[in-house]
Amino acid sequence: MAAKRITREYAEISESPPSGINVSLDNDNVHKWNVVMAGPEGSPYAGGTFHLSLTLPPEYPFKAPVLSFKTRIYHPNVTNDEKGSMCIGILKSESWKPSSKILAVLLAVQDLLREPVPDDALEAQIADKFKNDRPGFERDAKDAVKRWAK
């Protein structure tokens, strides 16, 4: 079931990709997608290009996809390391549901870049800065984009 549904979703997204998002398969493997996401306009990530890796487990859609940033990013909800693990509500095991689509997951990531969720942070220091020193946060995020996401 997984491969059939994934192929269908891949076709849908490829045919009409949402703005700022491009997907391709990693070595023709439908379970591993390469995602390229533009930093959303109006966010400190604007102008950056972020590569993400989307892994769809064999049990998909009964198990949630796994998404990580390959491009390093300064963001409260993404680990600021080479792993780039991220914390996003739709993918949490307690909130995942099989009717959630990959498109919705990718749009949720875009939303997360526009609006971080500091109360559900993976990087506490960045979350603190986001909450208490927004200009400082935006400056640091922009610097990080210049350094890592150009």
């Binding site: 079931m1 009964f62 909130s95 549901k97 099989p98 009717s99």
Partner: peptide
């Protein structure tokens, strides 16, 4: 079969939970 497989793991509607 689709619903049973999910419900056997989680008691939530696959759409509205």
């Amino acid at each position: 079969e689709c619903a049973s497989r999910w419900l056997n793991e989680h008691d939530t509607c696959p759409i509205c939970r």
